[in-house]
Design a protein around this nucleic acid. Structure first.
Lengths: 185, 185
DNA sequence: ACAGGCTCTGACCGATCGGTCAGGAAAGTG
DNA sequence: CACTTTCCTGACCGATCGGTCAGAGCCTGT
């Protein structure tokens, strides 16, 4: 197995494609667009990946792997503790994988129940359950979905850096989701 | 001036196109897709609208008109009162124009500073300023953007009806955005 | 009956889409 | 040196894209 000297073209393709997919969507991004920004030919893309969809698959797999780790760390904590940890870890995950996280919440759902994405969507549901502290109250679920979508959308654009985003997102998520000590209002 | 007996094809085109644009994006929706769901030919679409982009323009204009009315009603209220009213009116606006609102926040920004969309984007900024109670704290602005994006994204899918959504969205928005009486934590 | 304006269709256009293919430059291995 | 493998290119393909156009139904006013 040979070694590559410079940054591999493959990684560069993933970086550029992740950016474009998150900003203008999967169908809104052409292989030509990606190739131009990477600085290679369209055929080079299809040498490294079996197809446009495989590029998306690889990006989503990155997010899925991080998400799997997050859920594993929640372990068997009680719902309240798991909720608090899930919120913090989710914000950190989104800040580390801004584009990939956006893909999970904004473009993957457009592939209605494609088998390749069932796994990550199931884990996204599991995360939603964790940050609602296992509530089955529709209002809590709606609140959680609002925060999840809001956080990934805000993290897409580079207007703010992670240092500003982290405390702000943590505050808004906690205020929106963590119910004061009694469980009914 | 002739009268149409049935629901006009034009309105049906707007309904279907709004739904598709919000679900799979502008580029992700083809005129053929819209025509099939409307039940007419692709050429009929281009009889009623000068082009695909004009359909989007019409949908965005609906949202912009409602947004203009919202901002006008805030009038010269003091920031705190305007914030409270803006939150409630925004949620109602999104619930009335689910697709159109999603377009403003999810697809319009993809048309980077196209003149036709500058107006609605400026009003969206104005709304953001109102619901932060005119704060220039980045954390407040980030919180507001999170809620705005979250609310429109949750309202896109029809999993929940307006009766469930309204109280839940109002609660999450207020908890996330309205700061307790002292202005610093 | 006839003319004229709406509404809509099928056929068609150039451009661009995702993807294939034969082959060449470059680099390691014998 | 020759040989293989890796990485990449230009040319090309069929399908689909947004959009145009001539004309066909249909309704209304005269």
């Amino acid at each position: 197995m040979v070694r590559m000297a410079r940054v591999s073209t493959r990684d560069e393709i993933l970086r550029v494609a992740g950016d474009q997919f998150a900003r203008v969507g999967f169908k809104g991004t052409s292989l030509q667009d990606i190739a131009v920004e990477v600085g290679c030919s369209k055929a080079a893309l299809l040498y490294h990946f079996a197809g446009k969809e495989q590029i998306l698959l690889a990006l989503v797999a990155t997010a899925e792997h991080a998400l799997t780790g997050l859920l594993a760390d929640l372990g068997d904590l009680d719902p309240a503790a798991a909720q608090a940890l899930a919120i913090e870890r989710f914000v950190d995950l989104v800040l580390e994988f801004r584009r990939e996280a956006a893909l999970v919440y904004e473009v993957v759902p457009q592939f209605h129940s494609e088998p390749a994405f069932c796994s990550v969507l199931a884990q996204a549901d599991e995360l939603c359950a964790a940050i609602t502290a296992r509530s089955d109250d529709p209002a809590e679920i709606i609140a959680a979905q609002t925060v999840l979508h809001g956080v990934v959308n805000v993290a897409i654009d580079d207007k703010w850096d992670a240092a500003q985003l982290r405390p702000a997102l943590l505050r808004v998520a906690r205020r929106a989701l963590i119910t004061p000590h009694h469980d009914k209002d």
